[in-house]
Design a protein around this nucleic acid. Structure first.
Lengths: 174, 174
DNA sequence: TATTGTTATACTCTATAACTATA
DNA sequence: TATAGTTATAGAGTATAACAATA
């Protein structure tokens, strides 16, 4: 009952050494590779709970902000409203949350966790937290502390208004 | 000729403040958000070159490793072989690379860049490099230096064999 | 008019099985 | 039998347009 097989196929001995040194100099490329690996693993951690990374994130936001509307949830997760519908459907079908008519606005639903949802929240958050500690186990204390703020500043820097000159033309950089 | 519109829609003033503090404590969640933002932007930078992030990566690997086989390219990019076919098709159709019959193995193709491919490589690498400097402009020198090695160690740590106990059960972590 | 939730749709990315031709 | 490239396919993730009900 300790979960499914977690093997990875790797024994692909290439005849020549392929260099990706140029790509490795770009943070975007390294972020993509690291995130893809982590997401696959997080989904495996969440599978026993019947959750994926997105449904887990939605459940967490709902438990932490009971009564919020779907458009607020979509906004918090940076997910388009149409795509959120299926995610909320999924959580509701599993009895983890409920859609209640909003008293103030008859167009909107207030999202609330059920008792089962709150219980699953606690177990899933603990499991994901353990996984997070696992994948950062080889980082120093300082690196671990810096990682999340750095990622947040990259996100913020990139979301900021990009002047047209920066977007297409390019400034001198080395 | 300075590229298309780069506006972002953001003026969604939520009525209440929605907290994602729990999610923000997980590096995977922050990696997802940062990477999604960066990828969207990188694709916008590459669009004028007729490239996407994946085709750009493939072109770079081919230019840096001329004569390699498709399976080696797939391996280097961590892309499944079937998915690579369309990527290589794309680059070949644009005249950036050529598929040449391998002299040693009649099943295989040797991938080589064309002159146009090598030229586009230089321009695109410069543009992506500038974008990379742009999104990390608010990081300290130390943070910038640490970012890529940290991402690589997370990827390596997660690719490593995951013991069954770690995968499903969970050790004590605060 | 604008917004909430929704449907429909489409395109990309990722992943697996199975085929062919070679080895 | 195993591998290289390919085809077909399926599932997520992401994005936009448009609609009904309501504001």
């Amino acid at each position: 009952m300790a979960g499914g097989p977690a093997k990875r196929r790797k024994p692909k001995g290439s005849q020549r050494d392929i260099s990706d040194a140029t790509l490795r100099r770009f943070s975007g490329y390294n972020m993509k590779r690291a995130f893809n690996t982590v997401q696959t693993d997080v989904n495996r951690v969440l599978a026993p709970f019947g959750l994926r990374m997105v449904t887990f994130s939605a459940l967490v936001i709902i438990v932490d902000n009971p009564g919020l509307r779907q458009s607020q949830l979509a906004d918090a997760l940076s997910v388009e409203r149409p795509n959120l519908v299926l995610i909320v459907d999924d959580l509701e079908r599993r009895g983890l949350i409920s859609r209640n008519p909003s008293p103030k606005d008859r167009r909107a639903y207030a999202l609330n966790p059920t008792d089962d949802g709150a219980k699953l929240y606690r177990a899933a958050v603990a499991a994901v937290g353990d996984h997070d500690a696992w994948i950062t186990r080889h980082l120093s204390h300082a690196e671990r502390a810096a990682l999340i703020p750095v990622l947040q500043r990259i996100e913020a820097a990139d979301r900021a208004e990009v002047p047209e000159e920066k977007a297409s033309g390019r400034p001198q950089t080395s």
